[in-house]
Design a protein around this nucleic acid. Structure first.
Lengths: 219, 219
DNA sequence: TTTGTATGTAAACAATGTTAACATAAGGGA
DNA sequence: TCCCTTATGTTAACATTGTTTACATACAAA
């Protein structure tokens, strides 16, 4: 919505929107300032009136990315109505699914390139990456309820996160042809994590057939 | 060893050596053609007499990188003198250790940026990345011996690889401050993988105290 | 109306990978 | 020895990056 030919009026928002949509489709490396200026019909340097640098724009994108990621994963972990084990399972599924649907954004958030931005965001604003916090809370809840083995909840959370992150990375970074196996792989990985973390002190309930199958002792 | 001031004689090898050493210390993104020309005392375009492009040079580096990686991991997996479970454990340790010592090279080999080169290398020359093949063989051996659950060996191998890859990535990409926890994390992760893959049909031997501890049933 | 501020443009930079035209050395026949 | 080909290196120039500087335009408040 331009006010006139010279001033756009909402160019900053437009830059962010275009950049965010671009990353949904294409590799982060291909997002150049030229792409943004062409898409908005502005000059190459217009962006510097709204962001101090390209990285400053990327920081906003990463911030938005984490919000989107959290929106998908955190509520699922925190949903008290769902049995705890099922929350882990559903989250695993959704985690991998999200990474597959948003490979470029996933790499942007969790990759190395903008690690310093991520660290800044995550250290200043705890709530921005809610997902890991939610995972840790859920692990602690599981330990208190006797579902998971008593252990360092940070370590246990990292193990879970690392497993999912590794699987997601293998799939989206094209290391081995495993993309079409991904559904089974998530199940297998969940089974492995469950076997490693679960305690046998209490009876565990689940409403998901696959998870129920894992809880019943086999021959 | 220059033949004279004009022709070097072994410039190609020199480029590769310098590039390889550079990546041991600094980020791949910082390896520019200027770095190479300055280090060799040649002009910026001299490299094009020996490589068709920068990517062609990177391909050589990646090839060498896989050889180095395989040299560290494969023999350990294939060493028939070591109990099978210990081979997995030792490999896990060495895998994470190698990634920590060679973060830039690790990212170069397993990251996204040069995925198409990796795919080319791994598809043409099976032996180049021996490590995954060795892992799969060892998994199959474990299944045959009744140590691991009978399952799709590819899937089981991917689960193991993904777990290690995820942990390595979290550590070297600076996601959360887990670097100083890494030793414990590898142990925990191995425990989880073991719990997920292990069968209870045969008595399993190990000479590693930590692993023995995992095999003994706890209260 | 004037004046300051916000927001846009154009032109230029340096750094990057790359190419084309030219220069130099080495080696193999005649 | 001389000549020609080939291999190897240099210089100059390109387009593409992100970025800065000087200038231009619109708006808004005094």
């Amino acid at each position: 919505m331009k006010k006139n030919d010279y001033h756009h009026g909402n160019l900053k928002e437009e830059f962010l929107k275009i950049a965010f949509e671009f990353i949904h489709k294409e590799d982060v490396d291909k997002l150049t300032l030229k792409v943004l200026s062409d898409a908005t019909g502005t000059s190459r340097s217009a962006i510097y009136r709204h962001f101090s640098s390209k990285d400053a724009l990327m920081e906003e994108i990463i911030r938005q990315g984490f919000e989107e990621f959290d929106r998908v994963t955190s509520p699922m972990l925190r949903d008290q109505k769902t049995p705890l084990v099922d929350r882990f399972y559903n989250t695993s599924k959704v985690y991998i699914e999200w990474a597959k649907e948003n490979p470029n954004l996933y790499r942007l958030l969790f990759g190395r390139k903008y690690a310093y931005i991520r660290e800044e965001i995550l250290s200043i604003k705890e709530e921005t990456c809610d997902a890991f916090g939610a995972l840790k809370c859920t692990v602690e809840e599981g330990q208190e309820k006797g579902i998971l083995k008593k252990d360092d909840s940070l370590k246990q959370s990292v193990i879970i996160w690392a497993s999912l992150h590794g699987l997601a990375s293998l799939i989206i970074d094209g290391f081995m042809d495993v993309a079409e196996l991904s559904d089974e792989l998530v199940d297998d990985m969940f089974q492995s994590l469950l076997a490693g973390c679960i305690s046998n002190k209490v009876k565990i309930i689940s409403t998901i057939p696959f998870v129920k199958g894992l809880l019943e002792p086999k021959g």
